[in-house]
């Protein structure tokens, strides 16, 4: 079980933006996550949300990711989940969304794919 503190940070990569999430994503701060995802998409480059250090995510966190996905699709942009942790994958599977999101092993694949 990861013990990372809650955190969200956007990193500008080479031709993409990577939003790093960590900790337990729940109702208490999922609005921050939503904001960070939408801000990253505003740049117009592909966006990845890095989830390897996320030890818990609830439906409000999933909703922030869904909104990012929809926003990107509307604008013809790319949006993917990167390095999804087991805990996040379990919830995605439960919600039957594991095949809907684009899930990549690493941020580099954002450009390649």
């Amino acid at each position: 079980m990861s013990v990372s503190p809650n955190g969200v940070a956007a990193e500008r990569g080479d031709g993409y933006v990577l939003v790093r999430l960590s900790g337990e994503v729940d109702l208490s701060w999922s609005q921050e996550v939503r904001r960070a995802v939408l801000d990253a998409l505003a740049a117009g480059t592909p966006v990845g949300v890095e989830l390897s250090a996320v030890s818990y995510i609830d439906s409000s966190g999933i909703a922030a990711l869904v909104e990012g996905f929809q926003q990107a699709r509307q604008n013809g942009g790319r949006f993917a989940l990167v390095a999804v942790s087991d805990a996040v994958r379990a919830v995605l599977e439960l919600a039957r969304l594991d095949r809907v999101f684009v899930i990549l092993p690493s941020a580099d694949a954002l450009l390649a794919a």
Partner: peptide, 18 residues
């Protein structure tokens, strides 16, 4: 229903599933 890309109502759907 699960598997839909919608923001609302997922919580109850998850409760119902579990």
């Amino acid at each position: 229903p699960l598997g839909e890309m919608r923001c609302g109502g997922l919580g109850i759907a998850l409760i119902d599933e579990v």
